[in-house]
Amino acid sequence: MMRVLVIGVVVALAAPSHADPESHATGAWLELAIDSNLSIGGIDDVPSHRLVIGAQTESVAVGVALGFLYITPAWRFDIGPTARLTLAATPEHDTELVGEGGLLVSTFSSDGPTNRLYTFQAGLEVRHWLDRHLAIGGGILGHVEVQSTGTDSAIGVGAGGAFRVTGVF
């Protein structure tokens, strides 16, 4: 009887993992990112660091990105919404092709008040889930930066690589 009970428990515990095709957990989403940025015109050649906090579902993640840039001799904080959409995945769902988009707005600069910067970002990333809660990825990211100076605005464009670590809890 005890043996049947043990087997039943094992089968019950194993069943959900077979029935559930997703490879990663869903819930609170935390991402650490380093983006290189090469100017194509009118934008600073500086890598940026980002922390994203949000929610991850099976194929979509939305959150708030907190950006940090050091542009000699000052540093700057940005904040804004960001989203990830799974465009393709392997049958095991452990490797995904992910589209990315977001907007960052400058909030604070160490060298005092500056003109507000709006940075639009879009990119493509390959992401691999090492287990249900942790993923690593890399891709390419394009940046369009709009700086408003009173009635005028200046536009800068850049692109570069992006590397990130993702956790879902």
Partner: peptide, 27 residues
């Protein structure tokens, strides 16, 4: 490994080349 369509990204640091000062990205 699986065979099929591959998508990848490479971050490269080069010294002494034609002034590569920042990481180059190859997709």
């Amino acid at each position: 490994h699986r065979t099929g369509v591959a998508f990848g990204v490479e971050l490269e640091l080069a010294e002494g080349a034609s002034g590569v000062a920042l990481p180059a990205t190859h997709v």
